[in-house]
Design a binder for these strands. Structure first.
Length: 686
RNA sequence: GGCUACGUAGCUCAGCUGGUUAGAGCGCAGCAUUCAUAAUGCUGAGGUCGGUAGUUCAAGUCUACCCGUAGCUACCA
C-alpha cells in the first residue's frame, strides 16, 4: 500500500483561558489517530493554533492590564505546555494572530469578493455609549420580555427558554460598563452563503460527515441559508478588512483560515511539505478536521463554501466529538469537576486519561462521560492488571533463570498467530476512529495472554528447575504477546510504549513490527511501567479544582502553587453528615504483640487487645499495618492506640487483617495515634 | 418554542438492514492460585431494553405521543 499524505487539523482553542479536560477530549482523539497514521508509515502532519481574536480577548487583556498581544502570547505558552503534558504531538502550534493568517484571510476575502460573494448593508445593533463599543447579545443583560426574569442574556432566557432579540429586553444594560445600550446603525459585510445551498446539500451528504451531523445541518439547509455577517466594527482585536478602515474580520472568518496559516508556517521550515500539495484545488492529499460538535456550522457550512469559492480544496472529512461530562453531569466548578489540564497533571498521569478516553471514544459525536470511579477501576484493571502485569509476571523468570535472554522459538504458535492476525482488524478500527472497539479487542487479547500463562503455570515448573527450557519458552511467549499488545496500544499510550521499548531493548515500535517476533533476544531488567491510579489522588484533584475556583478570583495566580503544607497537598474532603461519621466505630486498643512479617516490605503484624466482651471473652484482633518503615515491633509493645473496630476483615497476602489502626503521614514519616495515659482498652472514641 | 442527538444489568458501554433463551468489560459473590505493581484463572448472581399506544407472524431495533438528559437555534467563541 502506498503512503498516504494526510493533514490533520484540530479545533483552535480560544486564547482566553486555560485548557481543561473538555478540550483535551478532542485533542487526544485527534492525536491518537495521528499517531496511528504515523505508525502505519503514512505522512501525517498535525497542525493547531490558538484562536486569538475577538471581543472576548480584547476585554480580557484590558482587564489584565496588558495589550492583547501580550495576553495571547502568555496564553499560547500555557496551551503549548498543557498539550505537551498530555502527549498531544502537534507538528506546529501557531496563532491566528500571525502574518501568515493575515495574508490568507485577506486573500480569501478578496477572492470571495471577486467572485461576487460579498455584500454589504447597514444593520442596527445595540451600542454601549460609555465604552464606545457595539455589543453582541452576550454582553447585554436585562429582564426577559416573556417571563420577566432578571439578568437574562440578550438572545434567550435561561428560565423560560424563550428566544428574542436583545432589543426586546426590558431595562437592558451593558455587562461591560453597566450603561444602557442605545441602538446604532453600522455597515456590515456579509458572505453570500445562500449561493452555496446546492453545493452544501451535496457536500454534507457525501460521506464527509457522520450522519447525525449531516442531519443537524439539514436544519439550516432546509430552512434556507442566510447571509453570514463577517465583519465587526472597531474597536475589535483582529484583522482590519482590506480597504475598509474601521471594519474588522469577525473572529470566525479567520479562525479556520488559521489551519492554512499554521500549515504554511510549517512548510517554511520543512523541505518535505508544500502548501499547494495539500490545499490546492487539485490536491489528492487528505485533509481532516477534528472539531467539537459546537462548531459544526462553521466547519461544515461556511468553511467549505469559502474554500470552494476562493479556489482551494475542500476537506476530505470532518471528525466531530461530543462534549465531556464528569460523573454524568456538566462540568461544574463548584463540584470540582471543572478540571484544568494543569490541575490534572499535578495529580495524575496523563496516559490514564488518554486510555480512558480511548476506551470510550467512537466515531460519532456523542457526549462522553468521565465517571471518576469508573476511571480508576477501568485503568487499573485494564492497563495495570491485565497488560502491564503480563510483562511483570514473565520478566522475572527470564531475567533470573536465563540472564535476560528470550528463547529461540515460542511455545504457542497458534496463540501468537491469532494475536498477530488481529492486527488488521485493530488497524481498521483505529482508521475508522472506533477507538473503543479497538481497545475492547486489544483487551480481549490481553485476557488470552493471562489465561495462557495461568494455564501453563511456569512458576510451578521453575520451582523444580529455574533453568527449564519450558519456563523460558512460556515466558518468552508471554513477553511476545505483551509486545504485540504494546504495539496496538502505542497510539494511545506512547510513553508507556517508549518505556517498553527500553525494557525489551528494541527500537521505536511501528505497526509493521507486529508481523515479527522477538526470538533469541536479549532484554533489559524489568522496572515497574505504570502504577495503579489511586483514588485519593483523584479526590485530591477534585478538591484542588474546587480551590481553583476560589483562588482564581484573586489575580495572584501563582500564590497557591507556592504553599507546601499537608493541607495544601491533600485538602480536606467533602463535608459529611454526623450519621456518616457515627458508622465508624473507633476503639482504644492495647498492642500486646508486634512482629515483622516475613516477605513483607511495609507491613507489621500487630496483635491488639480490646478487653472483655459481654460474654467475658478476651477480644484479640490481628491487624496488618503498613508502618514498618517508621516503627520497630519492640517500640510498639504495650502501647495503646486507636483501632477502627468495625472495619470489614480483609484477606491480605500474609493473613487476614481484622481492622485498621490509625496513623498519619507516609513513607518514613508515619505517626501512630496514642491516647493520653489512663485510657482503657475497648473504650469507644466519640 | 423549534431542531438534532441520547436514555439497554450497580457502573461504563456493544447490539448491523426488526427474527432463536438481550451481550461485553468493570464492580459484586464463591472457588482456585500466589509468578506478578493487593496482580491472575475458573464459576456465578444481576437487565425485558425511559414510559404509553401502535405497525408486524415477530420490536431493544420501525411509527406516534409523553417523560428525562445534552447540545444547537446564524452579530459569544
Amino acid at each position: 500500500m502506498s503512503r498516504r499524505n494526510i493533514l490533520v487539523t484540530n479545533a483552535l482553542p480560544y486564547a482566553n483561558g486555560p485548557i481543561h479536560l473538555g478540550h483535551l477530549l478532542g485533542y487526544i482523539q485527534a492525536d491518537i489517530w495521528v499517531r496511528f497514521q504515523r505508525m502505519q508509515g503514512n505522512n501525517c502532519t498535525y497542525v493547531c493554533a490558538d484562536d486569538a481574536h475577538g471581543t472576548g480577548i480584547m476585554l480580557s487583556a484590558e482587564k489584565a492590564g496588558v495589550s492583547p498581544e501580550e495576553f495571547i502570547d502568555a496564553v499560547n505558552q500555557e496551551h503549548q505546555r498543557d498539550f505537551a503534558d498530555f502527549l498531544v504531538d502537534f507538528d506546529i502550534y501557531h496563532s491566528t494572530h500571525s502574518d501568515e493568517n493575515k495574508t490568507f484571510s485577506s486573500l480569501i476575502y478578496e477572492r470571495c469578493k471577486a467572485s461576487g460573494h460579498i455584500s454589504q448593508r447597514s444593520i442596527t445593533q445595540l451600542y454601549d455609549p460609555e465604552k464606545d463599543l457595539f455589543l453582541s447579545d452576550r454582553f447585554i443583560k436585562g429582564q426577559c420580555p416573556k417571563c420577566k426574569t432578571e439578568d437574562q442574556y440578550g438572545d434567550n432566557c435561561e428560565v423560560c427558554s424563550s428566544t428574542y432579540n436583545a432589543t426586546d429586553l426590558i431595562n437592558p444594560r451593558s455587562t461591560i460598563s453597566g450603561a444602557t445600550p442605545v441602538e446604532k446603525e453600522s455597515t456590515h459585510f456579509f458572505f453570500k452563503l445562500p449561493a452555496f445551498a446546492d453545493f452544501l446539500n451535496e457536500w454534507t451528504r457525501s460521506g464527509t460527515l457522520p450522519t447525525q451531523v449531516a442531519n443537524k445541518l439539514a436544519e439550516w439547509l432546509d430552512s434556507g441559508l442566510q447571509e453570514w455577517d463577517i465583519s465587526r466594527d472597531a474597536p475589535y482585536f483582529g484583522f482590519e478588512i482590506p480597504g475598509e478602515p474601521g471594519k474588522y474580520f469577525y473572529v470566525w472568518l479567520d479562525a479556520p483560515i488559521g489551519y492554512m496559516a499554521s500549515f504554511q508556517k510549517l512548510c517554511e521550515s520543512r523541505d518535505d511539505l508544500n502548501f499547494e500539495d495539500y490545499w490546492g484545488v487539485e490536491s489528492n492529499n487528505e485533509l481532516w478536521h477534528f472539531i467539537g460538535k459546537d462548531i459544526i456550522n462553521f466547519h461544515a457550512l461556511f468553511w467549505p463554501a469559502m474554500l470552494k469559492t476562493s479556489n482551494f480544496r475542500t476537506p476530505t472529512g470532518i471528525s466531530v466529538n461530543g462534549f465531556l461530562t464528569v460523573n454524568g453531569q456538566k462540568m461544574s466548578k463548584s463540584r470540582g469537576t471543572f478540571i484544568m489540564a494543569e490541575t490534572y497533571k499535578q495529580h495524575l498521569n496523563p496516559e490514564y486519561l488518554r486510555y480512558y478516553f480511548a476506551g470510550k471514544l467512537g466515531s460519532n459525536p456523542d457526549d462522553l462521560d468521565l465517571n471518576l470511579e469508573d476511571f480508576v477501576q477501568r485503568v487499573n484493571s485494564d492497563v495495570v492488571g491485565k497488560v502491564v502485569n503480563i510483562a511483570s509476571r514473565c520478566a522475572g523468570f527470564i531475567n533470573k533463570g536465563f540472564e535476560g535472554k528470550l528463547s529461540a522459538e515460542v511455545s504457542e504458535p497458534d496463540l501468537i498467530a491469532d494475536c498477530q492476525q488481529t492486527t488488521t482488524e485493530i488497524a481498521e478500527l483505529y482508521e475508522q476512529r472506533e477507538f473503543s472497539k479497538a481497545i475492547r479487542l486489544i483487551m480481549s487479547l490481553a485476557d488470552k495472554a493471562n489465561q495462557y500463562i495461568a494455564d501453563k503455570t511456569p512458576w510451578v515448573l521453575a520451582k523444580e528447575n529455574p533453568q527449564a527450557l519450558e519456563v523460558q519458552n512460556i515466558c518468552s511467549t508471554g513477553l511476545n504477546l505483551f509486545r504485540l499488545l504494546i504495539i496496538y496500544l502505542k497510539p494511545v499510550l506512547p510513553n508507556l510504549a517508549n518505556q517498553v521499548e527500553e525494557f525489551l531493548n528494541v527500537s521505536a515500535l511501528q505497526w509493521q513490527d507486529a508481523e515479527s517476533l522477538l526470538l533469541d533476544h536479549q532484554i533489559n531488567k524489568f522496572k515497574p511501567l505504570m502504577t495503579r491510579v489511586e483514588s485519593t489522588k483523584v479526590d485530591a484533584m477534585v478538591e484542588a479544582s474546587k480551590e481553583n475556583l476560589n483562588t482564581q478570583e484573586n489575580s495572584s495566580v501563582d500564590a497557591s502553587d507556592k504553599v507546601d503544607s499537608p493541607l495544601s497537598n491533600d485538602p480536606i474532603s467533602d463535608e459529611i453528615e454526623f450519621p456518616d461519621f457515627a458508622k465508624v466505630d473507633l476503639r482504644i486498643a492495647k498492642i500486646v504483640e508486634a512482629n515483622y512479617v516475613e516477605g513483607a516490605d511495609k507491613l507489621l503484624k500487630i496483635t491488639l487487645d480490646l478487653g472483655l466482651n459481654a460474654a467475658g471473652e478476651q477480644q484479640i484482633r490481628t491487624v496488618f499495618s503498613g508502618i514498618k518503615s517508621a516503627y520497630k515491633p519492640e517500640q510498639l509493645n504495650g502501647m495503646y492506640t486507636v483501632l477502627v473496630a468495625n472495619l470489614k476483615s480483609r484477606k491480605m497476602k500474609f493473613g487476614v487483617s481484622e481492622g485498621m489502626i490509625l496513623a498519619a503521614g507516609e513513607g518514613d514519616d508515619i505517626y501512630l495515634l496514642e491516647p493520653h495515659k489512663g485510657a482503657q482498652a475497648g473504650l469507644r472514641i466519640t
